[in-house]
Amino acid sequence: MKKNALACIAGLAGVALAAVAQAGTVRDDGLKPYEVVGDIAIPKPLTDKPGDPANGRKLVANRKKGNCLACHKIEQMKDFLFHGEIGPELTDIASNMPASEMRLRLVNPKIVNPDTIMPAFYRVDGLYRVMKKFQGKPILTAQEIEDVIAFLVTLKAPK
């Protein structure tokens, strides 16, 4: 995975247009453009409006939205039953990962780990046999991604 950021996005979108990743350019899949840096981060937020952590918390629990609890344990969300154990615990994620890297994990974790089970929450291309009513739609909107990040950056284990 030593491709440069632009080539990486273009490759994923199945388009040869390097311009696609430049801020302000309209992507052909209708999603907001973003720039991947060093294959591990998306430094710039997807939207101008700052994320809302309270809504982010709801999205993390909501089975029809983030459903992050299906796979991740989050100590601060003990008010919800049944946290899964598929992915690493996120209780202290803010101490271990900057927002820019969280953003890439949410937008498309397959750039970090091509074989991961974790869904790409902001992606509509390169998918197979998506149910009709979900076709062309990302799991989370750009604003919802920012809301989830705004919540994740509050997650620090009490020391």
Binding site: F82, G84, P119, V130
Partner: peptide
């Protein structure tokens, strides 16, 4: 082994890679 759906998973992601683990309940 083929990924599919909006969540983009193959059968193997759950039943090979994560068998024996809880996915929510």
């Amino acid at each position: 082994f083929k990924r599919r759906g909006q969540l983009d998973m193959a059968c193997k992601h759950c039943h090979y890679d994560h068998a024996g683990q809880y996915i929510r309940a």
